[in-house]
Design a protein around this nucleic acid. Structure first.
Lengths: 226, 226
DNA sequence: ATCATTCTTGTCCGACCGGTCAACTATAGG
DNA sequence: CCTATAGTTGACCGGTCGGACAAGAATGAT
C-alpha cells in the first residue's frame, strides 16, 4: 500500500558511483540527493544516515560480485591465464573508465578500505567479508589448477590471500602513477604468487629489536615523522 | 629578524599524524590548529592552504625516507631476508602502533594515494615520485642479489615494481582484516615476486572482447553497479 | 470512495568548513 | 633603544555539512 518508488535504488546506485569517485568523506548527502534527483527529506526516509547507505551499497556490491564469481569459476580456461586475466581485464576496465568518465578511480572496495577501515568497524567488517569470499573462490581455483597439474601450488590459502593483496596493490600503483600499463607489466606476478614457495625456515617470526629499522619500509611511520 | 617560532614544524608534524589517522578530507584546518596549539590565522601565515600543507608533509616524508633507505642498502644481510623483513618489520610497527595508539592506520602514503591520487594531481605526482624512488632502491637491491647469486632475478625492474605494489596490498589487507599476522603469512610472497618468471608468450596484450567479464575482478565496477 | 500508508517536499537547525583580515605582540639586527 | 619584520590573535565571511520535521501528494488495499 502507499506509493512505491525506485528512489531507494537510485540512491544506492548514485551513492556507490559518487563514493567510488570521490571517497566517503568527500561526498555529501546533498550531493547524493542532487544526483539522484530528490530532496534530502526523501533520503532520510529510506536511510537513517549516510553511514547506513554506504553499508547498503556494500551489500549490493557483494551480491553482484557473488554472481560474477560463480560464472568465472565455470570458465574452462587455463588457470594461469585466468589469473593474469584478472589484471589484464582490469587494464581494459581502466581504459574504458578513462574513456567514458575521463579518469579511473581504482577499486571501489580498496578505496573504501583504505579510507574507512580504521575508522568504521561496520564498514571494515563488511569489506573484510567480501575480501574473504574473494579469497575463498581463489582457493577453489588454485586447488583445481593443482589437481589438474596445471600449477604447483604449495599453499593455496596463502597464495589466495597474497593474490587478493597483490591485485589491490597493483590497482593502487596504477592509479597513483596514472599508468594502466602497470596492470600488464605486473600480470605475471599473479602466477608467481600462486606458485610461491614457503620459506624453508617455518617463518621469521622474530619481532626483532624494534629500532634497528630496515628503512626501506618506514611505512608505518607516524613515528618517523617526529 | 622578527620572531622565530617552531610553529611551522609543529604544523607539519601534527598534520601528517592527523591525515594519516583520519584522511585528508576528514581532517579540518581547525583540527590541525587545535592539535598544534595555535589559531587559524597562524596557520595561514605559514601555508597558503591545506592542500599546500599536505604537499609539504610529503616532502618531509620523502626526506626521511631517503635517509632510511640509504642505511638499509648498506646492511649486509641476505636479500631474501631483507625482503621478507620489510613485511615482518611492518608487523612489528603495526603491533607497536596498536599498543601505543589503539589501532594501526596502514601506510600513510597508501592511504593518501587511495584517497587523493585521482582528485589532486599535485599529490598524485608527489606520491608517484616517492614510489618510484622506492622502486629504484629495490632495483639496486635485487641486482646486487642477482650478481651475488643469491637470487634468480629475471627482471629486476618489474620485480621491484611488483614488490612496491605487493607491500601496499598486504598493508591494506592487514588493515582491512585488522589482522597483523597477514604480514607474517605473506612475507614469503616477496621472494616469489623477486624471482618471478616472465611469461613465455611476451604478454597477453589482447584487450579482449570487453563484456565477457571474468567476474573475479569486477573491481573497476562502477559499471557493474547499474 | 476512503483511508492508511508510503513517498516527497521545503524549510529550518546548529555546527563546522576553508579561508580572510586588521590589529596586536614579541623579537632579532642595527 | 628602536624599528622592521615575523609571528599571533580573535572576530568574521559565505557556504556547506549531516540531520530533523511538519505538512502535503500520490498510491494501494479495502
Amino acid at each position: 500500500m502507499g506509493r512505491c518508488s525506485d528512489a531507494r535504488d537510485r540512491l544506492l546506485a548514485v551513492a556507490s558511483q559518487l563514493v567510488h569517485e570521490r571517497g566517503y568523506t568527500a561526498v555529501s548527502v546533498s550531493d547524493i540527493c542532487k544526483a539522484a534527483g530528490l530532496k534530502k527529506g526523501s533520503f532520510y526516509h529510506f536511510f537513517r544516515s549516510k553511514h547506513e547507505l554506504v553499508l547498503a551499497t556494500l551489500d549490493r556490491f557483494a551480491e553482484h560480485q557473488e554472481v560474477g564469481m560463480q560464472q568465472a569459476l565455470q570458465s574452462g580456461r587455463p588457470v594461469s591465464e585466468q589469473l593474469a586475466g584478472m589484471l589484464t581485464s582490469m587494464y581494459a576496465g581502466y581504459m574504458r573508465a578513462k574513456r567514458n568518465f575521463g579518469s579511473a578511480h581504482g577499486c571501489p572496495l580498496g578505496n573504501l578500505a583504505q579510507e574507512m577501515a580504521h575508522r568504521d568497524t561496520d564498514i571494515q567488517n563488511k569489506l573484510a567479508t567480501i575480501f574473504a569470499r574473494w579469497q575463498t573462490q581463489l582457493i577453489f581455483l588454485l586447488r583445481r589448477a593443482a589437481d589438474r597439474g596445471e600449477l604447483r601450488v604449495p599453499d593455496a590459502e596463502r597464495s589466495a590471500e597474497a593474490l587478493v593483496a597483490y591485485v589491490q596493490g597493483v590497482t593502487l600503483l596504477a592509479k597513483t602513477t596514472n599508468d594502466p600499463d602497470v596492470f600488464l607489466r605486473l600480470a605475471h606476478g599473479m602466477v608467481a604468487l600462486a606458485q610461491a614457495e614457503l620459506p624453508t625456515a617455518p617463518a621469521p617470526i622474530d619481532v626483532e629489536e624494534p629500532s634497528h629499522s630496515d628503512g626501506l619500509h618506514t611505512c608505518q611511520a607516524s613515528e618517523v615523522l617526529s
